[in-house]
Design a protein around this nucleic acid. Structure first.
Lengths: 250, 250
DNA sequence: TTATTTTTGGTTGTTTATGATTGAAAATTG
DNA sequence: CAATTTTCAATCATAAACAACCAAAAATAA
């Protein structure tokens, strides 16, 4: 295993778990303890992580590279399952909308060789989409430099000329009264419109998003179907009158 | 296997995998270890990749270079000058359209800290634009997977809701009778519309583009001002009744 | 054709990365 | 607190990867 490969792996594991022992890394990379120690020293010098006794932890002032890894793979396994399930819902001939977000990104590899058309507002999804030869329309709009998503009135206008069979959206908060919410009002407006343009809407959200509320309301619970991973029975009970929840079993 | 072919292959493999061992490249190209080592050294000098012990890894600013790999540096110096000149035409408060292409890409660093708004159809320009903190709107449309440009009827529709002070376009052919031409009809349609939506249109083209014609007509010579580098006097004389040519002096 | 340059693949000794070992330092336990 | 275990940095031998060199082959020029 080459050095940069190992370093990438270390950062990745760290992104999932926030803290990691040397032993775990030894197993994950199939290299020796000495090598891992050396790697950690170096990565620490590069400010990519902080060494702690017995392993390493995320540095809290996140360099942009780190934050990317960090976000992209927190709860990666759950998100992967959710994404897989969502893809099974897509049928040949469908026109679907893919929202920006890490979970929807994970859907793309599973969509290869399907006769579908994808519309998205996520510039970050384009590489994966073109790699898997999926016919893709990007909506227009203002480029939000931080998240590389398209927003604003021109995005709304651009989006509104499409109609979808299914839309798949990430979401930050799912709450009994507040409904679906997300931090950015502009992104919320885009999500909201996407839902109303589609026959069916699916919210991809791991269990951490329940009972949370964020700043901007996207839609009522009744407007979309939630796809999530393991979840308490009483949560299901609470929500079941308001919306449909599909739980992805491991 | 020829050298440029091998280099292309190496970059290609690297694009897929991010890291690659020398052994893998030896197999992929059916050449010897020595040759691969030489290739890697050279490609590293060209900043196309980073050598690591045992192989090579992507240089961190990969995306921009990768797709434009072959074209990227032909007549780079001339294009740089042309781009610089074009930027001097931009005034504070302008709304400008930047076409996809290597020359327009080189304009972006010079636009930093100007109070302007950029509209573009070039996904490949976005990284540079956001890096230099330029307010950017992307038009919508079908993603042309090869060039990562936005085309098609939805791109036309999306573009037509903007108006520009100035547009800057690359062009493949400039010809007395045929006017401005470019290979792809869909891209031609976008370019053509951009010109008609703007107060002033500028074509950025080095001297090799004169007297050439390509498949699709974009506009008549009279519809735009040409910015080019050194050029024969008689060419200027030939064209001067039809259009305005500004020659960038070294 | 022959002469010359460039490119290639193998060989050399040298450098680098790795994994094991050690005693020191830190954490954990009683 | 001391005793014990774990983790650590430093060192070392080894195996892998390396640059430098050379001769053969291929491409180019004369």
């Amino acid at each position: 295993m080459l050095t940069p490969e190992r370093h990438r792996k270390i950062i990745e594991v760290l992104g999932e778990k926030s803290v990691v022992t040397i032993q775990e890394l030894v197993e994950a990379t199939a290299s020796s303890e000495s090598t891992i120690r050396r790697d950690l020293s170096q990565l620490q010098k590069e400010k990519k992580l902080k060494r702690v006794h017995g392993g390493a932890s995320l540095t809290h002032q996140k360099s942009e590279e780190l934050s990317l890894f960090e976000k992209s793979d927190r709860n990666a396994v759950e998100k992967q399952r959710i994404a897989q399930y969502a893809c099974d819902l897509v049928e040949n001939g469908d026109c679907i909308y893919l929202d920006a977000g890490t979970t929807t990104l994970k859907m793309i590899p599973h969509l290869k060789d399907r006769e579908i058309t994808v519309v998205t507002n996520a510039i970050s999804h384009l590489d994966a989409l073109s790699e898997h030869e999926i016919k893709t329309y990007l909506i227009g709009g203002l480029v939000k430099s931080k998240t590389k998503a398209l927003v604003g009135s021109s995005a709304i206008k651009s989006l509104s000329s499409y109609r979808f069979d299914k839309v798949f959206l990430g979401m930050n908060g799912i709450h009994m009264e507040a409904g679906f919410t997300t931090p950015d009002p502009e992104e919320a407006a885009v999500k909201s419109l996407a839902i109303s343009l589609s026959q069916k809407a699916f919210i991809l959200a791991d269990h951490t998003k329940f009972h949370e509320t964020s700043f901007s309301k996207v839609a009522d619970l009744s407007e979309a179907i939630i796809i999530t991973n393991e979840i308490d029975d009483d949560v299901i009970y609470d929500f079941q009158d308001k919306t449909e929840i599909r739980v992805v079993t491991p």
